[in-house]
Design a protein around this nucleic acid. Structure first.
Lengths: 224, 224
DNA sequence: CCTCTTTTCTAACTAGTGTTAGTTTTTCGA
DNA sequence: TCGAAAAACTAACACTAGTTAGAAAAGAGG
């Protein structure tokens, strides 16, 4: 069996791109094969030459959406030196994640908006990919905590959920005219990392008296 | 014209609750009047006695979803003393927001999932409420920055987007069995606030040499 | 018990859904 | 240029959608 013809692959991608865009705007049920076809400059029936059902299409969109992010983050992390500190790993992952979800905006947005509405089986399949991605982040965080770079009392599962939640939400408000990806990544890293790293006044010796003089600056948060 | 009868109001709320739940699970287009009716123990046609269209229903769900959060956060902030520091205001707002969106889970989730798929006019109307809520958060943050409590170089618009993004995402993963609302709120606050407050080693005199001895702990994040 | 109002139901309409079978057009190597 | 393979189209199918008009039931007050 030889490779698929180029022509077919192009057309297939055009349908997939169109599907991502329409799913993004109208949700799972709100998306019709006829509208996807129109977006892809085709007739509805022709889609079935490339994808065997609507569910097949949404499944492809979902998988590609998360895979693009996984690959981007993995590649960026792989380029770091072995001994790169946790802070840099987090910064790098944040930047790569942001770039990926904005470059693949239609797919990520479609994924985010449609995920909860898709048939159980399709969601389950896609969930496996997402879980592996979550595990990747968890590794970065726990590794850094083990090395003493992050506060030992931080709940890293919650921190991960915070980070990925905020990151994934960016596609909702990010517009090309506003802050650049670099700017957003830098600011977000600043918020997250400076809340996670061990603070000098905690580890460094001779910082205790400063804390006593100025209680409101204490690291630990009182329960509400 | 007298007040509406109690009986009618109860039935109307039952329909609205059912609608929130179904919209949450199936999205805007995926939700059918017949399924909402079933959930509310009614026949499809009867819904139209209470709401004049499907769009009327979704609009009510969206508005109630955001209003519940606004009221909760406003109330919590009002109970703070006049001179409450920014750190405490942020903690309080985070906790109130979290409590509200989890108590009104169906409405918040429906709102989050359906917002992007709803007809333009309805979205526009709901957006006004959401903008007023965003402005409220912005006030808390800028006020604290003015008073010197938060880093002067932090981009507070971005910070707000991160916070609200992460908070709104919690409804996707929060389960009664896991971390409590208090725990989540405390951890989120820790991440956010400790990333925003002025760090002692920046303001306090005599911290410079510590920074020189241990460069990786520097506050500012290098661009990637 | 009767009557008026509120609430619910029934049955139907039109429009649009995913999908398919069969046909036509396009592509491209020999 | 011919002809087979690939790609796209057409027209229809069974089904479900939101909505409505009118009948029926439930409730309340006298």
């Amino acid at each position: 069996m030889t490779k698929k013809l180029a022509k077919s692959a192009i057309s297939q991608k055009r349908v997939l791109d169109a599907a991502a865009k329409i799913f993004r705007d109208f949700g799972y049920a709100g998306t019709t094969m006829r509208v996807i076809a129109e977006e892809a400059e085709l007739k509805a029936g022709s889609i079935y030459y490339h994808y065997k059902s609507k569910d097949d299409l949404i499944s492809a969109v979902l998988d590609l959406g998360i895979k693009a992010v996984i690959d981007a983050v993995k590649d960026a992390l792989a380029k770091l030196p072995e001994d790169a500190p946790g802070r840099l790993r987090v910064q790098t992952a944040i930047h790569a994640h942001l770039s990926a979800i904005i470059d693949n905006g239609d797919y990520t947005l479609a994924t985010r908006r449609v995920f909860g509405q898709v048939p159980e089986a399709i969601r389950e399949k896609n969930l496996r990919l997402r879980n592996s991605y979550a595990a990747m982040w968890q590794d970065i965080l726990t590794e850094a905590q083990k090395r003493g770079e992050f506060r030992p009392d931080a709940n890293l599962s919650l921190a991960r959920l915070f980070i990925l939640g905020a990151l994934n939400w960016t596609v909702e408000w990010f517009k090309p005219g506003g802050s650049s990806i670099d700017e957003v990544a830098r600011n977000f890293s600043a918020v997250v990392v400076d809340g996670l790293v061990v603070r000098p006044d905690v580890t460094a010796s001779g910082a205790a008296e400063a804390e006593e003089k100025d209680p409101p600056r204490t690291v630990r948060i009182r329960a509400l």
